[in-house]
């Protein structure tokens, strides 16, 4: 479904990604793990069209979407839940969700709003509150719901458990399981490596901008040499 080949991205002189490649098949949950600064966020940002790409190609559903504008890539069916959630704090929960469905028709949007209210009961209770007043866990759910409002074929999440209390981290991973059960395709960046490997069908390990390992979650969990990669060394 998603096919990234030889992606290289630079910030000025800094190489953030070096020749990174990955694929995501339909219905898969794929994890992207590695230490801070490994280039995980850069990789998602490059796929979503937020960051300029120096070389490499990104194909989605058979179409070349390399260096497309973010709004075009979203329309192709790829949605990103950005790092730090980036919800629109001054707007209500409902308005945030509506913006998520900006590409959908009015009727479809109304349907999707109902769907989200059902999937995320927390949001229903805060429907008309400005999103800035929500707790971290609620905001994360809103960010995910907002991304789902565009009916994406593939949803990318950047550090969904970042800054959340352990119980909320559990909730995020439960949510990923729920979405998987619905048959959705998900690419998740996580620094909580063990949890991610348990939740993912497959995973890639990124270090210093390069993919250093790949395999099923279970395979990677068994590789003791990767312990150092997660913790450093």
């Amino acid at each position: 479904m998603l096919e990234v080949t030889g992606l290289t991205t630079k910030y000025g002189a800094i190489s953030a990604l070096r020749d990174a490649s990955l694929t995501v098949g339909a219905g898969e949950v794929v994890g992207l793990i590695g230490p801070n600064g490994a280039g995980k966020t850069t990789l998602l940002g490059s796929i979503a069209g937020l960051l300029p790409i120096d070389s490499g190609t990104i194909r989605f559903d058979g179409n070349d979407i390399t260096s497309g504008a973010p709004e075009k890539i979203l329309r192709a069916g790829l949605s990103l839940v950005p790092e730090h959630r980036r919800i629109f704090a001054d707007m209500t929960v409902e308005e945030n969700l509506k913006i998520g469905g900006v590409t959908r028709s009015g009727a479809e949007r109304a349907e999707l709003l109902d769907e989200m209210a059902e999937l995320f009961p927390v949001l229903r209770d805060k429907w008309d509150t400005p999103a800035g007043y929500m707790s971290g866990g609620e905001a994360q759910q809103l960010a995910i719901a907002r991304a789902l409002m565009s009916k994406p074929k593939l949803i990318m999440m950047d550090e969904p458990s970042l800054g959340l209390a352990p119980i909320l981290v559990d909730l995020v991973f439960e949510l990923i399981d729920t979405l998987r059960a619905q048959g959705r395709t998900i690419l998740v960046v996580e620094q909580n490596a063990t949890r991610m490997l348990r939740a993912a069908d497959r995973a890639y390990v990124l270090r210093s901008g390069e993919v250093v390992a790949t395999g099923t979650g279970a395979e990677l969990l068994d590789r003791s040499d990767l312990f150092d990669t997660f913790v450093g060394g």
């Binding site: 909580n192 490596a193 312990f227």
Partner: peptide, 9 residues
């Protein structure tokens, strides 16, 4: 803290 639950890995 570092590995989530590395202790039971």
């Amino acid at each position: 803290a570092y590995l989530g639950s590395a202790a039971d890995r």
